[in-house]
Amino acid sequence: CETCDRYISGRVLEAGGKHYHPTCARCVRCHQMFTEGEEMYLTGSEVWHPICKQAAR
């Protein structure tokens, strides 16, 4: 997992080739988790909900 550096077994979320436990992938702006299939916007090592990234501009 990109966030906690632990092995992932079971469900995995992926953004930009990086992998996360579903509970570790959180938006840097709103701190909410991502749901399965939800779009993730990756900037460097930061993961955003698209609407949060747009609002931060």
Rank of each mutant, 00 (worst) to 15 (best):
P50M: 07
F34T: 05
G16N: 12
L13R: 06
C27Y: 01
T35V: 10
G16F: 02
V28P: 14
M33C: 13
E38C: 06
Y41W: 07
T43M: 09
W48E: 14
E38R: 04
R57I: 15
Q32D: 12
A15Y: 15
G44D: 15
H21K: 00
E14P: 06
C24F: 00
G17A: 04
G44M: 13
K18V: 03
A15I: 15
I51H: 14
E38K: 05
F34Y: 03
A56M: 10
H49V: 00
G10Y: 01
A56Y: 05
Y41E: 15
E38L: 01
Q54C: 04
D5E: 07
C52N: 05
R26V: 10
H49Y: 01
Y7T: 12
E2L: 06
P50V: 12
C30I: 02
R57D: 13
Q54S: 11
A55E: 13
V28L: 07
A55Q: 08
K18I: 02
E36D: 14
G17Y: 00
A55N: 15
S45A: 13
E39I: 02
R29A: 13
M33S: 15
S9G: 05
T35Y: 14
G37S: 14
M33E: 07
C52S: 01
E14K: 05
H49D: 00
T35W: 02
S45E: 11
R57L: 09
H31D: 10
Y20A: 04
V47D: 02
E2V: 13
M33N: 14
M40L: 10
R11V: 06
Y41L: 12
G16V: 01
E38Y: 03
H31M: 11
A56P: 06
T3N: 15
H19T: 11
H31Y: 09
C52G: 02
C4G: 00
A15K: 15
Q54I: 10
A15S: 14
C4A: 01
W48F: 07
E46C: 08
R6M: 07
G17H: 03
I8V: 01
V12G: 14
M33L: 11
L42D: 11
L42W: 12
M33F: 14
E36R: 08
V47I: 10
G44Y: 04
K18P: 01
S45P: 04
K53D: 13
Q32N: 15
S9A: 11
G17Q: 04
R29I: 15
G16C: 09
K53F: 08
Y20S: 02
V47N: 11
T23P: 05
V47K: 06
Q54G: 09
A25P: 05
A15G: 05
S9P: 06
V47T: 11
C4Q: 00
T3S: 09
Q32F: 03
E39L: 02
Y7A: 13
C4E: 01
E2Q: 12
H49M: 00
C24W: 00
M40I: 15
S9C: 04
K53A: 09
C30G: 01
Q54Y: 02
D5S: 12
T23A: 11
T43F: 08
V47L: 12
W48Y: 15
A15P: 01
A25F: 13
R26I: 15
E46N: 12
T23I: 03
L13T: 13
Y41H: 15
D5K: 14
C52V: 02
T35L: 09
H19I: 07
F34C: 06
G10R: 03
C24A: 00
E46I: 04
H21P: 00
H19Y: 13
L13D: 02
S9T: 13
C27W: 00
D5L: 08
V47F: 10
V28A: 12
I8K: 03
G16I: 00
A55H: 14
R26F: 08
V28S: 11
E14W: 05
C30E: 03
F34D: 04
V28K: 10
E46A: 06
I8T: 03
G17L: 01
E36F: 06
E39V: 03
R11W: 01
E38A: 08
C24P: 00
T43N: 09
S9K: 11
G17C: 03
M40V: 07
C4I: 01
Y41T: 15
R57W: 06
M33V: 09
C30L: 01
E14N: 09
R6W: 01
R26D: 02
C52D: 03
P22A: 09
C30Q: 02
H31I: 04
L42F: 15
P50G: 10
E14F: 07
W48A: 15
P22I: 10
R26Q: 14
D5C: 10
V47Y: 08
S45Q: 13
E39R: 06
R26S: 14
I8C: 02
M40W: 15
R11D: 13
C52T: 00
I51K: 08
T3H: 03
R26T: 12
F34P: 12
S9V: 08
E36A: 11
K53N: 13
H21D: 00
M33G: 14
P22S: 03
R11G: 07
G44F: 04
F34H: 00
T3L: 11
H31P: 01
S45K: 04
Y20I: 05
S45N: 14
I8N: 02
F34R: 04
D5T: 12
E38P: 03
Y41M: 13
S9Q: 12
T43E: 12
Y20L: 09
I8R: 02
R26G: 03
A55C: 01
E36Q: 05
D5I: 02
R6A: 07
V28M: 10
E46L: 06
H19A: 12
G16H: 07
E38I: 03
I51Y: 08
Y7E: 15
T35I: 07
V12F: 06
A56Q: 09
P22K: 08
R6C: 09
E2H: 08
I51S: 13
I8P: 03
C4F: 00
I51R: 11
Q54H: 04
T3I: 15
G17K: 06
Q32E: 12
A55S: 09
T35M: 06
T23Y: 04
T23G: 10
Y20H: 01
T43R: 06
